[in-house]
């Protein structure tokens, strides 16, 4: 029952003041017992953070679900104004960037510096292309007067210029505002995550080219990878929900 193992007083404090001075790699934080613990803690921490992100987007998805069911015709009409070619392309681009990011993690794991930098740069480029296309789409919405709170007009939905489109009654047409608001809120929040991601990527490229992640310290790359894939997943859901409502019309 006796436990001498609980140290009650400082036995001996080395000159460094740090109680344990085994030789650990430089990137190990000294409050961890060993590098395995540090790595596990880091990736678990990242996952817990992603839980938070799920719930953050969750609120928006919940709102979407309700209004889509209430105002289905408006959502169909709104969705059909989006450019499906650009949307599909963007989905492919983002999946590509997820792939390059996965490869970047692999390169770091294999300790290949050049390859790591290459894949990180590719990820940045693909992310940039995605945002570029998104900007084109946003601009199109601006031209069409489809930005709620800014220059919204229901003209196009009440008297469609496209002969195949079904006109909406004015009160239903008003509800397209809700669709577009959710469109901007969801894709905007997603784009914000992408922009933050690209900022972090730029920082990581700089460090990677100095060999920071290819000497065993892959945690930052791995964790960033998780973040980036999460952002990809959000888009995987946004794409069908926003672009693909009753396209056959």
């Amino acid at each position: 029952m006796d436990s001498p193992s609980i140290a009650t007083t400082p036995h001996e404090l080395g000159s460094s003041g740090l109680p344990h001075a085994h030789d650990h790699p430089a990137f190990m934080r000294h409050h961890f017992e060993d590098i395995g613990q540090q790595r596990e803690a880091a990736s678990f921490g990242m996952w817990v953070f992603l839980l938070t992100e799920i719930m953050f987007f969750g609120g928006l998805f919940c709102a979407y679900l309700i209004f889509r069911n209430w105002y289905h015709p408006a959502f169909v009409a709104g969705s059909n104004t989006l450019d499906i070619t650009l949307g599909t392309t963007n989905t492919a681009v983002l999946i590509g960037s997820s792939f390059t990011m996965a490869m970047a993690v692999y390169s770091a794991e294999m300790r290949r510096k050049g390859q790591l930098v290459l894949f990180l740069v590719l990820t940045i480029l693909l992310g940039g292309v995605f945002l570029g296309i998104k900007a084109v789409e946003y601009h199109q919405k601006y031209v069409d007067h489809h930005i709620p709170g800014m220059n919204f007009s229901i003209q196009e939905f009440v008297h469609p210029t496209n002969p195949k489109a079904i006109p909406l009654a004015p009160d239903m047409a008003e509800k397209t505002q809700l669709y577009f608001f959710l469109y901007f809120a969801m894709t905007g929040m997603h784009a914000l995550h992408m922009i933050i991601g690209i900022g972090l990527l730029l920082f990581m490229v700089a460090r990677a080219s100095r060999g920071a992640y290819t000497a065993g310290h892959v945690i930052p790359v791995e964790n960033f990878g998780l973040y980036w894939h999460f952002v990809d997943i959000v888009w995987i859901f946004l794409f069908p929900l926003l672009y693909l409502i009753s396209r056959y019309r």
Binding site: I6, A7, P19
Partner: peptide
Amino acid sequence: WQIQSPPLTENFSEIPI
């Protein structure tokens, strides 16, 4: 309660068992 009060910066001079 088994360590000094106030505690050391890194709490335990040796990780307890």
